[in-house]
Simulated assay, not measured.
Amino acid sequence: MPLNDIKIRNLKSGDRAYKVSDFEGLFILVKVSGAKSWRFKYRIDGKERLLVIGDYPAVSLAKARQARDVAKAQLADGVDPSEAKQEEKRLRLEAKGQTFEKIGAAFLAKQRKEGKSAATLSKTEYHIKLANRDFGRKPVSEITAPMILKTLRKVEAKGNYETAHRLRARIGSIFRYAVASGIAETDPTYALRDALIRPTRVHRAAIVDPKALGRLMVEIDGFDGQATTRIALKLLAILAQRPGEVRNAKWDEIDLAEAVWSIPAAKMKMRRDHNVPLPKQALKLLEHLRAMNNKGDYLFPSLRTWTRPMSENTLNAALRRMGYSGDEMTAHGFRASFSTLANESGLWNPDAIERALAHVEKNEVRRAYARGEHWEERVRLAVWWAGFLDEVRAG
């Protein structure tokens, strides 16, 4: 007869383990210790097999029958229930090993193989570290949008709105990597797109008055810090490239004979190769720098080691030392100085100025028709700008 809870509770242990049947292959095994365990006996490929379902009362009679019915359905599909349970257990244990911390490390390794810039790798490491504090040891399959939001709110509570948005984006990149690798099914950060406070866009301080810019160039000439820092600031002003690109410049990218600096895509913000024409003022500085710096790959190595570039804070710190606050001028501000004054001159095609700055046209249709690099005009523009700086310095 089928079992019921009263019968099961009244089953007593004996000198030997024994079993009591329910029906359709399901039975309960009463062990010598008094423990009771559900089992399902079945046949597959002519062989008798046994599926261990679980212990009573943790697994109730109803749940045991439900498990038996699932096993019967698997048998109908030609699946061995015992093997299916072992596979499920293996996947569950594997999932526990597929933590966010491990997937994040794999994503970072992928970025290194792709040749991402040192700045990008540093930011990725920083963001992963922030996320790992809260859910690094959790399997990615168990991490939910509310968990991630809790982490983002901690960053947001400190007023770091931009960092919170970038952290959400980085976590999303790691989850999409996990999805592509078959480890996760969805990216939970997608649901958080509108959950964070939008940061107010603050433009970096820049000097756009010619006289004030001339005074700054004079101050740079008289800078009493490291000579390499002084040269870096001068090249930053003349070439109008991003501070990170100048700091990370290597000698094998510089062709003094052809007067061209070729920056590889991996170092560029927009991930496109970028060539920078070198006017005579820049060439003179580079020749002087080469005579000073004949070791290592970097134009501007760290003071501590030749194998790394100067710190990202060095150039801004030099401006502060000269008396320019962050509200007056930043290392990145030289680009705005160039863009503003070159456009105001009315001498140059705005597209040539944008390409000089390595900006990418956002309008896809217009970009398709503006594939030219405006190279010849950019060479003339570079000569004009270097001469303009000389003029305002002299003035």
Rank of each mutant, 00 (worst) to 15 (best):
391 E>A: 11
217 M>K: 08
301 P>V: 13
203 H>Q: 14
140 V>I: 10
9 R>L: 05
339 S>A: 13
236 L>E: 10
60 S>H: 11
394 A>E: 09
104 G>Y: 00
176 R>E: 10
223 F>K: 00
299 L>A: 03
198 R>W: 01
71 A>H: 08
76 A>Y: 05
179 V>I: 08
198 R>V: 14
316 N>G: 15
87 E>L: 13
111 Q>L: 15
20 V>H: 02
313 N>I: 02
12 K>G: 04
296 G>P: 10
171 I>D: 07
382 A>L: 11
3 L>K: 07
164 A>M: 10
14 G>D: 05
77 D>I: 01
159 G>C: 13
333 G>R: 04
168 R>L: 13
224 D>I: 00
5 D>R: 12
355 R>Q: 10
334 F>H: 01
94 E>S: 10
296 G>D: 06
250 K>C: 12
274 H>C: 01
51 L>I: 09
4 N>F: 13
256 L>K: 10
302 S>R: 01
235 L>M: 14
210 P>F: 09
11 L>I: 06
385 W>F: 15
134 D>Y: 07
252 D>G: 01
192 L>C: 05
146 P>C: 05
113 K>E: 15
76 A>L: 13
287 E>P: 01
158 K>C: 00
183 I>R: 04
324 Y>N: 02
309 P>T: 12
241 Q>L: 14
109 A>C: 01
369 Y>V: 09
154 K>W: 06
337 S>T: 07
220 I>A: 11
16 R>Y: 09
359 H>C: 08
339 S>K: 09
307 T>V: 08
14 G>H: 08
134 D>R: 10
336 A>W: 00
108 L>S: 04
350 P>F: 15
230 R>W: 06
108 L>P: 03
193 R>F: 03
384 W>R: 05
86 Q>L: 15
11 L>Q: 11
36 K>Y: 12
237 A>Q: 01
163 T>N: 02
203 H>K: 06
270 M>S: 12
82 S>F: 03
321 R>T: 11
5 D>Q: 08
161 Y>M: 00
314 T>Q: 03
185 E>G: 12
62 A>W: 08
241 Q>D: 05
225 G>Y: 10
101 E>K: 14
134 D>H: 13
40 F>M: 07
272 R>K: 15
287 E>S: 05
4 N>Q: 03
314 T>S: 12
227 A>F: 03
41 K>V: 06
381 L>K: 00
74 Q>I: 01
311 S>F: 03
103 I>D: 02
351 D>I: 03
38 W>F: 14
299 L>W: 07
209 D>Y: 06
121 L>G: 06
347 L>M: 15
